[in-house]
Write a protein that binds this DNA or RNA. Structure first.
Length: 586
RNA sequence: GCGCUUGUAGCUCAGCCGGAUAGAGCAUCGGCCUUCUAAGCCGAGGGUCGCAGGUUCGAGUCCUGCCAAGCGCGCCA
């Protein structure tokens, strides 16, 4: 309907232009919006005011001319000029009824559009380092990313979901060393665990499994590991130097084959855990992309070579730098360290080059907000590789501050003191967690109160929406129990009986659904869909309390049943996009 | 210090490219269950949209300055 009005207005304006009433050089975008106040009709446009501005004319007289040139449409019963120059449209209620058969016929497909025209979009999200289980901070990225992916798919894009696995680099080496030290403890060795090692209980679990699998095969006396190391922080030393020395010692003592075994035990175990965790959370991927694979295939060298040829690399102080400052970054960045090691950024350049080579029309990275300083250098890299940086959108997910009631919860993966995503799911369930996470604008700081999220009873709005669905299901169960007949066709023929204010409200909301899905997809804003579903549920609950559905009058009953069946379908479709279930009873 | 993000009701947050009287949930207060699930509904109170300027027919929304908060500023990942 919105689009229909926009077309009408466009043709009216074109007619005025061809008649010379509006200068051809005046550009006005035609925008129609739903009115907030029913007294202003159903739809309104401010186009006369924007035109008047460009023409330096009177908005109301421009509005008059537009209305005069407006082609007739059976659905529009009245137009009026209001306020400073709004054009308000009053729509024939009869025209709104068509939405019900449309929804019933399209079923699960209703709300999907071809807007994206099959353009290929890659969405990368979560991509947490496999050095420990996912915590509640990752959960928001997971819920947000998968909702954005589903919305884009619903809007007609071809979506490729991806998890970038940082299975190489120093953090993974520290994990491997941590596993091995715990393994030595399992073997009966006594040692002081490094302050910068991974101290979580899960490391011990991995070590125990390793111990069970290989027995004492990887044992070395603890003195061989710890003698002559630079001091750790508690002894007044540097924790980074200390842990690096332990990593080096671990590699030297184990040899490459055994080291790989320990490394693999840690990586595989944690990655399996992450996979399972996300699967249970309803978060899926087309691809788990390995950083190590990138290194081993020579893609990193290839990327750097490409930058070198294009003249973006230089050498300074023994390191190789990428001249990103010239491309909008704060400063230049090191890609190969003095010691010959590639930086994390180097493999990230290669990863983005790989994304570009795969021919995606759009690349979306969903990152924690603490990575925002990283965006300019990645954009610079894309530009230096000869591609268009605007192809990449980085969406930041803010997690902000975690509370348990009044008390602030400190989180650190290293220390092992954090709330895992799995703990949250066990406490509140998948549905509440998914809903809670995408309820708020993603880049907004928010206080996440675990006590609130885990309160199962009243606070969580997910139950409110699910309850609306369950209530509708319950009505249909009652229909069966009372042995009342339902005639779908008769209901469709008597939709004009739906003239209660609650019914017209619901009809208007149902009409909006496809627009909501589309705009939520384009803005990567699933919280718009959440808000919509809460409003739709509120209208349903109000309707439920005000009107009886299972009335004697069969024609009216069938019409009402068709209306609530359509509402149920929208609730199912909308919740489905958020991966929240729609239970038939609660 | 510089950069990014944010500041809306007691609390947590919406507010779609600038639009008509700024909204919701929670909390508080008062009503509604012999009739389709009360995890619900109906109603009331509660606001200088951080502060000060500016842009214009019109600003919570755009611009500038200030104040406050979060995050980021490694040859870490």
């Amino acid at each position: 309907m919105k689009k229909r009005l926009e077309v009408l207005l466009r043709s009216a304006i074109d007619a005025l232009i061809s008649r010379g009433e509006i200068p051809t050089d005046v550009q006005a975008e035609v925008m129609v919006e739903h009115t907030r106040d029913a007294r202003h009709g159903d739809f309104a446009t401010n186009v006369a005011m924007t035109l008047a501005k460009a023409m330096r004319g009177n908005p109301r007289s421009v509005a008059e001319k537009i209305i005069e040139a407006l082609p007739g449409d059976s659905a529009v019963v009245k137009t009026e000029i209001a306020g400073p120059g709004f054009i308000n449209f009053f729509i024939d209620p009869q025209a709104q009824f068509g939405i019900i058969p449309q929804i019933i016929e399209a079923g699960h497909e209703f709300g999907r559009s071809e807007f994206g025209a099959g353009k290929r979009v890659q969405v990368e999200y979560v991509s947490a380092n496999p050095t420990g289980p996912l915590h509640v901070g990752h959960g928001r990225g997971a819920a947000y990313g998968s909702a954005v992916a589903k919305l884009l798919a619903a809007a007609g894009f071809e979506v490729h979901r991806e998890y970038y696995v940082n299975d190489a680099g120093r953090q993974m080496d520290i994990l491997a060393a941590s596993v091995w030290l715990r393994y030595l403890e399992e073997c009966g060795e006594v040692l002081v665990f490094p302050s910068n090692g991974y101290r979580g209980e899960y490391v011990r679990d991995i070590a125990q499994s390793l111990h069970k699998a290989v027995g004492l095969g990887l044992r070395h006396p603890s003195s061989a590991v710890t003698d002559h190391l630079p001091p750790d922080e508690p002894e007044g030393g540097d924790k980074e130097l200390h842990i690096d020395a332990i990593v080096a010692r671990t590699k030297a003592l184990l040899g490459s084959e055994d080291y790989r075994r320990v490394f693999g035990a840690g990586l595989d175990s944690i990655l399996d855990d992450i996979r399972e965790d996300l699967f249970e959370f309803g978060v899926a991927y087309e691809e788990w992309f390995s950083e190590r694979g990138l290194t081993e295939s020579g893609a990193v060298e290839r990327a750097l070579e490409k930058l070198r040829v294009a003249g973006h690399l230089y050498e300074k102080e023994g390191a190789i730098w990428f001249a990103s400052a010239a491309l909008g970054d704060e400063k230049d960045r090191v890609v190969v360290r003095e010691n010959g090691q590639m930086t994390y950024f180097a493999s990230d350049i290669a990863y983005h080059m790989n994304k570009l080579e795969r021919g995606f029309d759009r690349i979306i990275n969903i990152w924690g907000a603490d990575h925002h300083g990283y965006i300019p250098r990645v954009k610079a890299a894309i530009q230096a590789l000869g591609a268009d940086p605007s192809k990449l959108d980085v969406l930041l997910v803010q997690f902000a501050v975690l509370y348990r009631g009044e008390e602030r919860v400190q989180m650190s993966t290293r220390s092992g003191e954090f709330v895992t995503l799995r703990q949250l799911r066990n406490e509140v369930g998948k549905d509440a967690a998914r809903f809670f996470y995408v309820m708020r604008k993603s880049d907004q700081h928010m206080d996440f109160d675990l006590k609130l999220a885990t309160s199962r009873t009243n606070e969580n709005p997910v139950f409110y929406v699910q309850y609306a669905h369950a209530r509708i299901c319950s009505v249909f169960r009652q229909l069966d129990e009372k042995g009342l007949p339902r005639d779908l066709l008769q209901g469709m023929q008597h939709l004009q009986r739906l003239c209660e204010s609650h019914e017209t409200d619901l009809l208007a909301s149902l009409t909006r659904y496809p627009e909501v899905v589309e705009s939520a997809a384009l803005q990567q804003a699933p919280h718009h869909l959440v808000n919509y579903l809460r409003e739709l549920a509120a209208e349903l609950h109000a309707y439920y309390n005000a009107c009886q559905f299972l009335v004697e009058d069969a024609a009216l009953r069938d019409a009402r049943l068709n209306l609530i069946a359509a509402v149920r379908q929208i609730l199912v479709n909308g919740l489905g996009l958020l991966d929240v279930s729609a239970p038939e009873s609660m």
